[in-house]
Design a binder for these strands. Structure first.
Length: 407
RNA sequence: GCGCAGGUGGCGGAGUGGUCAAUCGCAGCAGACUGUAAAUCUGUCGCCCAUUGGGCUACGGGGGUUCGAAUCCCUCCCUGCGCA
C-alpha cells in the first residue's frame, strides 16, 4: 500500500537528537520543526502569507473545534483543510484528545498540563468529589461525551468517529484519539486512562487502515503515561508496536523533568518514525525535546502570549505593556529579523497594545512565532553543524539570565 | 435675577446618619498563560509605615447639628436645564 508519509533522518546526536525531513503530500517539513497552532483552521490573527514569511512549515488544526464549527461536512464542502484556509503546506489535526482534559478535568480549574512545583502535587482526592464540579466531558470505555459550549448539545466522540472527522478534514498528519490526563490525577487513574488510550489507539489505527484516506493521510499514535516512568515506557512499547506512521507524545508533565519523561519514551519508540511532542513550546523545553529525540512540536504559547502582550526576546520574556517600554524606541528584540522588529519600535507596539488596536496582537504574534519557529530551525542547523550543545548553552545562558524583568 | 437638578477617588457612576477609604465599570499598575473554554484571566488600585495590622487626609469651600456626617441644617462657590 502507498505510504502517505516518509521520514528521512540525516543527522543524529547529541543524545537522542536527530535532524531530518518529513515528506508529506503537501510538502516537506525539515525537522526538528515547530508547527504553528491554528486550532480552528486559522492561526489567530495571521494570514497564511504571514505564516510563510515567518517561516512556518506546517499548521496544526483541531478536530474537536472544526467538528463543532463549522462541522466536518462543511470543511469537506470547502475542499478540505488546505483549500479552506488557503494553506498549501503540510498540516496536522489533533484528535480532540486534549479537549478530553481541557474541557474535562481541566475545565473551570487553573490546572495546567504542566506541573511547575514539584513540592506541590495536588492529587485529586476522589473522582467522585470532583464529579460535582461542572465539566463538559464524560469519559467511558468507548469514548468521550462532549457537551458543546456553543449550544449545550452532547456529542459523543469515539476513536472511530475522531478518525472519520479527521479524514473529512483532510490534514496530512492526523492523530489517534487519546485521553490527555490532568497531572493532578492519581497514578491509579493514570493507569486506567492509559489502558483506555491504548485501546483507543488500536481502534483509531484499525479504523484508519480500513479507509482509503489512509493512503493520503498519515496517522500518529499517542503515547501517554503522565509523570510515571513505568507507564511512559509501557505506553511507548504498546503504541510503538502498532503500525502507526509516527507518534505523538502527549499528556501531563512535571516542568522539571519533562525531558526525562520524553527520553523514557523515545528510547523505546522505533527510531525510524517521526515523533511529535504535543503542546510543548517554551524555549527551554524545545531544547530538551530536541535533545531527547523529538522531531516536531506545536504550542499555543507564541500566539497566545503574543496576543496577551508577552514577547520572547533573546534576553528573556518581556511584557510589552509595562510602563518602561512606553518610550522605548528599540525593536522588540534587537537581534530579531521578523517583520515586527524590522519595522516597528517597542514604544509603538506598546501603544498599539494598550490602545487595543488589533495590529498590536498581530505584530506580537508574528514576532513570537518567528522567534520560536526560528529557534527550532537554528537548533536543526546546529545539529547539522554539530554545534547543538554549544548553541543550547549560549542561547539558554542569555535567555535565562533575563536582563529583562521576566524569566 | 428667579426656579429646578446637581457637585463623590484619574474618568464614569453607586452610596443618602454609624458596619465607608467609600459597590461597580473604565483607565492605570503588575502578574499568569505549554496538543487554544483564552484579543483571556488574576491581583492591585487615596497617602504613609506594616506580616496580620496601624496611622493620616478625604466625598466643591466654610460653618453648624450629632456620641458619630459623603449622608441632616446654614452659607458661599461652581455646573446643567428652564423661565425672565
Amino acid at each position: 500500500m502507498k505510504k502517505p508519509l516518509a521520514f528521512d533522518i540525516h543527522t543524529k546526536g547529541p543524545g537522542l537528537a536527530r535532524a531530518g525531513v518529513i515528506r508529506t503530500p503537501h510538502g516537506d517539513i525539515a525537522t526538528p520543526a515547530f508547527i504553528a497552532v491554528g486550532t480552528k483552521a486559522a492561526v489567530r490573527g495571521l494570514t497564511v502569507d504571514m505564516l510563510r514569511d515567518i517561516g512556518v512549515e506546517a499548521v496544526l488544526a483541531n478536530t474537536y473545534h472544526l467538528y463543532m464549527q463549522p462541522g466536518e461536512a462543511l470543511v469537506r464542502t470547502m475542499g478540505g483543510l488546505h483549500e479552506m484556509m488557503g494553506w498549501k503546506g503540510p498540516t496536522m489535526t489533533d484528535s480532540g484528545g486534549f479537549q478530553v482534559f481541557s474541557l474535562g478535568a481541566g475545565y473551570g480549574t487553573n490546572v495546567s498540563k504542566i506541573l511547575k512545583d514539584m513540592t506541590v502535587r495536588p492529587l485529586l482526592k476522589e473522582r467522585d468529589e470532583e464529579a460535582t464540579k461542572p465539566r463538559l466531558v464524560e469519559i467511558d470505555h468507548d469514548g468521550a461525551a462532549f457537551k458543546s459550549p456553543l449550544d449545550g448539545i452532547i456529542h459523543y466522540i469515539t476513536p472511530e468517529r475522531s478518525i472519520e472527522i479527521q479524514h473529512a478534514i483532510g490534514a496530512d498528519i492526523i492523530f489517534a484519539f487519546d485521553e490527555c490526563t490532568s497531572p493532578s490525577e492519581s497514578k491509579a487513574y493514570q493507569r486506567e486512562a492509559l489502558d483506555r488510550t491504548h485501546r483507543w489507539g488500536k481502534r483509531s489505527l484499525e479504523y484508519h487502515l480500513s479507509r482509503p484516506e489512509s493512503e493520503r493521510q498519515a496517522l500518529f499514535g499517542i503515547v501517554q503515561g503522565g509523570r510515571y516512568e513505568d507507564l511512559r515506557k509501557e505506553s511507548a512499547t504498546a503504541i510503538g508496536a502498532m503500525d502507526f506512521d509516527g507518534f505523538g507524545i502527549g499528556g501531563s508533565f512535571d516542568k522539571q523533568d519533562l525531558h526525562t519523561a520524553v527520553r523514557w519514551v523515545n528510547e523505546v519508540l522505533p527510531e525510524g518514525k517521526p515523533r511529535h511532542l504535543l503542546g510543548i513550546g517554551e524555549p527551554e523545553d524545545l531544547f530538551l525535546g530536541v535533545e531527547n529525540g523529538c522531531d516536531t512540536f506545536d504550542c499555543v504559547a507564541p500566539t497566545r502570549l503574543g496576543r496577551h502582550g508577552t514577547l520572547y526576546t533573546k534576553d528573556g520574556k518581556i511584557h510589552i505593556s509595562n510602563t518602561k517600554y512606553s518610550a522605548d524606541i528599540s525593536p522588540l528584540d534587537p537581534d530579531c529579523d521578523c517583520y515586527a522588529c524590522r519595522n516597528y519600535t517597542r514604544a509603538y507596539i506598546a501603544h498599539l497594545y494598550k490602545s487595543r488596536e488589533m495590529l498590536g496582537p498581530m505584530l506580537c504574534s508574528i514576532h513570537n512565532l518567528y522567534f520560536i519557529v526560528n529557534l527550532v530551525k537554528n537548533m536543526r542547523q546546529a545539529l547539522t553543524d554539530g554545534t547543538f550543545l554549544s548553541y543550547k548553552k549560549e542561547f539558554l545562558g542569555r535567555y535565562q539570565a533575563g536582563k529583562d524583568d521576566l524569566k
